[in-house]
Design a protein around this nucleic acid. Sequence first.
DNA 1: ACATTAAGTGATT
DNA 2: AATCACTTAATGT
Length: 217
Amino acid sequence: MSSQANPQIFQLLHKHYPDISELKLQEEIAAVGQIFHFKAGERIMDFGSYIKLVPLVISGSIKVVREDQERDNELFLYFLGAGDTCSMSFSCCMKNKVSDIRTTAEDDTTLIGIPVKYVDQWMMKYQTWKSFVMNSYDLRMQELVQTIDNIVFHKLDDRLFDYLKKKSVANSSNIIHTTHQDIANDLNASREGISRILKQFEKMNRISLGRNKIELL
DNA sequence: ACATTAAGTGATT
DNA sequence: AATCACTTAATGT
């Protein structure tokens, strides 16, 4: 805590996290936060590891997946982008539990890591931190409820299109490089099902298809 | 040219 | 919508 505030973090906060406006809080984050860089595809956190840092994403994006114990599958949860933080990490770290989730850099990513012990402290100390945390919970919650709806009502096509949109945003490109099989794994669906729906999307001129390539129109 | 891997299809449940 | 059994197409060696 005797460490000095990192002026770079200070600036990044200002730019990407305008909601975190309390000066004292900004100073604390700058003092204890650390900047990390990850290359696309790099594993950031894995199942079973203890979470000791909460990320504030600055640029790039992170893919968050949940482990599926029965199969060798992973269920895709969501992408984190600039200005996002990982709601899962809050709940995990507060109980000092091991991670249920795995995160990988979807794109080259920069983030500020905050040691978990402060996350707690700041909740009581700073109003803006509290609402920041609550807010990101709320956003994630809405998103998850939505996808649960889509699963219950068998709307695989909605889920698939959402997935494509989000992936496109995550990679800041309209062209997505992936296979139908990989998508199927992420969404816990069959490859054939994905292929057929993609084919429909193509006929509706919403996308165009190629090998290992999907372009959003 | 041959093998491998991704994608498309139709039938069945 | 999943699974199976093939077929067809694209790519790598």
